[in-house]
Design a protein around this nucleic acid. Structure first.
Lengths: 346, 346
DNA sequence: TTGTAGGCGTTATCAT
DNA sequence: ATGATAACGCCTACAA
């Protein structure tokens, strides 16, 4: 396992606690050269005698010297650190967005520090408070409103991912829920459904998905009212199951439901089947997100697939624009539109 | 959407490109005070006249001033940044480990910068190269061997997550595969299985899971040979499907298979059923990891569940020990042991 | 090849 | 309540 061969304390002592970190000065002293020479050795600059270099490097090892990233950053500009704030790493949707962010960030040579707020408003603010000092920009999902965000942000550029109902004064990357629901509802209608309910994930205010859902349903002249919409507690499978059961009790006449996201939709499938309803024969289920998980369940989930990676990449691009002093993308350029993927559940 | 109300360039100009960032000096000048006073105003120190403070803050806003994190870090110690290197964010296993890391890191007031290497050795090295300059420690999954890691690490503390077969000279957090397989194989044997195959995920060298598998199978006096082990290409569902098909062709006499991880096991289930084999009646499938996805597939996956969050937390603790100059945990203290979760597939 | 001087942007300390 | 001065640790000139 572990030996003290490689990982040792400065000076080779193992257990006298953390001591002051060695500086370039210490190394210079121990090697009997100037700080400049140490710098040259450490940074592989030319113009240095191989012997002295070796001597310096030896001193570096002995003292376990590593250049201070702060001192370095002060003098070599160009290190960009972006913050990424995510509500729930356990929901497969977000790791995929994060993957897009990481990918695009790496291409630009940026670093990304990640926070998981667990959908907790207080944690959001904490994250922002820290990042406002440590990052050059932030992107992420927030439930706090603009004003609060601005307060904790202290002027840092911010890119909102999928800002819900509210307009925002920040740059944003959004989802074209309307375009998605248009396809989704059309598909259900085409299959003969006339009584379509929804399992919503936004408890407080109706979000874009619900509004798009209502708009589409009405556009097709179908009946619908608030009673046809059940609220999921959380964005997970369990929430979807509970909401579906509730809806099954309250509105047994529904023949199809639209789930706020795939997790909730999967929960709906499970609940329905447990109640003896066949999916899709007795109840069709339509999801939203396009998680790969949807291909694995039975019946496989018909859903409105989002390019989540692209969402992340787009966020990085927005940040880049902000940093460059350009105007961020707006409207359709800053949207990603879902695409209907028909599988077995609807 | 976006207005230039909040997010504007220094001075309010919008499109003359990025200009030099304002420093504390600029603010001091504009406000007609000393840098020190600016610092006081910005950091909410006492001992400052409310009026001057207001004036300074106004100047701050006008110039869009934000303190340099480098200069600050130089003078205020204590900011810890850890690197987290992960092979594949799309595999639900890793986000959960990451969640544990993030959680524990937050408790300590650390930041975490995340890299996704996509199981690419070169990306690993790139990540290490960057992190060696920008982080105070690194934890993660690596396929490069110790020597290479050390070279790119430049003396930075490293904690390996689940170092495969090889011993390592670095601190590590491991999985007690043997303890897991003991339970798993016992369960299969109890159910009457005598011909158990495996779908392995480690192509090159046999990893701990395969070795534990072989050891247990032999301990029970069961037959087994290399032909009973198929290699999955990648750690995903598709790899599992292909490997299972191959095994089904080559060794149709098998009545049970152990999957390297849950994704592969799920693939196995799918492939088997597609071939008309009933699971678990004709073929029992045992997974490893305990992803929540396993509860959603059909039949639900019997698996050796790991506390992935704890894995992440443990890694952070190891890093903390290293930083404190203490010896890292070793042996069983640095392991997490799987727990058999019996569901429908075996 | 090596060393010296100066500055990067901030905060702490000590005066005023 | 405010300002001057000196670090913090490193790097880029420039000089030797």
């Amino acid at each position: 396992m572990w030996t003290d061969e490689q990982q040792r304390e400065p000076g080779g002592h193992a257990s006298d606690g953390p001591r002051r970190r060695a500086t370039i000065h210490d190394v210079a002293q121990l090697a009997g050269v100037s700080r400049q020479t140490v710098s040259r050795a450490v940074n592989d600059k030319g113009e240095i005698d191989p012997d002295t270099k070796a001597r310096v490097l030896e001193a570096v090892r002995m003292l376990d010297y590593r250049p201070s990233r702060f001192a370095r950053g002060l003098v070599r500009k160009g290190t960009v650190t972006a913050g990424l704030v995510i509500p729930d790493l356990m929901n497969p949707f977000f790791p995929e967005v994060a993957a897009g962010v990481l990918e695009a960030a790496e291409e630009r040579g940026w670093q990304v520090v990640v926070w998981d707020t667990r959908t907790d408003g207080a944690k959001e603010r904490e994250a922002l408070g820290v990042l406002s000092h440590q990052a050059d920009a932030v992107m992420g999902y927030f439930k706090n409103d603009d004003e609060v965000l601005a307060r904790y942000l202290g002027g840092l550029p911010l890119v909102l991912l999928e800002r819900g109902p509210q307009q925002t004064r920040f740059a944003a990357v959004g989802i074209d829920a309307a375009a998605g629901l248009e396809q989704g509802i059309a598909h259900l209608v085409r299959a003969g459904h006339r009584r379509i309910g929804m399992l919503d994930g936004d408890r407080l205010t109706p979000g874009p998905r619900r509004e798009a859902f209502l708009a589409e349903v009405r556009r097709h002249g179908l009946p619908v009212d608030d009673g046809w919409i059940a609220m999921s507690d959380g964005h997970g499978v369990a929430g979807g199951e509970a909401a579906m059961e509730q809806l099954l009790d309250a509105r047994p006449q529904l023949t199809a439901v639209f789930g706020f996201n795939d997790l909730i939709a999967v929960g709906a499938i499970r609940a329905a089947r447990r109640r003896g309803r066949r999916v899709p024969e007795d109840l069709a289920v339509l999801g939203f997100d396009g998680l790969s998980l949807g291909e694995l369940v039975e019946p496989a989930l018909t859903t409105l697939r989002l390019d989540k990676r692209r969402l992340g990449r787009l966020a990085v691009e927005q940040v880049a624009r902000l940093r460059a002093g350009e105007k961020p993308l707006t409207g359709a350029d800053a949207w990603v539109a879902p695409e209907l993927v028909v599988r077995a559940s609807a």
